[in-house]
């Protein structure tokens, strides 16, 4: 379960302090597929980076399965990102000189899986997200946007994370491919009982998730 309590993030700029998030509180149950909507600059990406332990909040708590990740040491936050969090990005962010298979194996390496088991697990994951064996050996540049996002999802769920954080997962895809990716994420949340929190602009997608949070000027609006 994900519990966020009074989360605040303030940035110091040349013109003074700017609050990106202000007393944000929410709870997402395990296996729930939630979406966050909001205009550009509303604090969506900042919120996601706090949840993924990519950045440290100014104040407040983020509890994942009872552990406050904001208080973890840098090393433990890295381990948290490797094992408890999966990221899906709008621009996929696959490593360009590694094949699809190697990209997934990289996440398995960071998750601590023994070298001998990585390949079989990566192949299974890529097959599950719909990538053919020959496509698994291609580098990202030789895959379509939809295929790259599938690889990105396979990488995100490789280490059985507690939460998958998706930043505009369909933002770079056509509507048909976007729907397929959404269905894939939805299916995973059900079959793997993985909590999924997706930031999106697409109201059609947001409407199909279990719950939708609206961020406005760094605050939960609903």
């Amino acid at each position: 379960m994900l519990v966020v309590k009074n989360l605040t993030k303030t940035f110091t700029t040349a013109s003074g302090s700017v609050s990106a998030l202000e007393n944000v509180s929410l709870t997402v149950e395990t296996g729930e597929f939630a979406s966050i909507i909001g205009k550009s600059g509303s604090g969506k990406s900042t919120f996601l980076s706090m949840l993924g332990a990519l950045d440290i909040p100014t104040s407040g708590k983020i509890e994942v399965d009872g552990v406050d990740i904001a208080k973890l040491s840098a090393n433990k936050q890295t381990a948290y990102r490797a094992k408890k969090i999966g990221f899906v990005f709008q621009h996929y962010n696959l490593i360009p000189n590694l094949s699809a298979l190697e990209n997934v194996m990289l996440a398995l390496e960071f998750g601590g899986m023994p070298m001998k088991k990585r390949k079989a697990r990566a192949e299974q994951l890529l097959t599950d997200v719909g990538l053919e064996p020959d496509e698994q050996l291609r580098k990202p540049a030789r895959l379509s946007g939809g295929q790259q996002q599938r690889v990105s999802i396979a990488r995100a769920i490789a280490n059985h994370p507690a939460i998958v954080l998706a930043d505009e997962p369909t933002g770079n895809l056509d509507s048909e491919t976007g729907k397929k990716i959404f269905d894939l994420l939805h299916r995973l949340s059900r079959s793997e009982k993985t909590t999924i929190l997706a930031v999106t602009h697409d109201m059609n997608i947001a409407g199909k998730t279990d719950r939708t949070f609206k961020l406005k000027d760094g605050k939960i609006a609903n």
Binding site: L54, T78, R81, A82, K83, N93, I95, L106, G111, N159
Partner: peptide, 16 residues
């Protein structure tokens, strides 16, 4: 930079 950010985001340590 971005690639290094990705590696760190998915659990890669500074040392690695």
């Amino acid at each position: 930079r971005r690639e290094i950010g990705v590696i760190k985001a998915i659990g890669g340590t500074n040392r690695k």
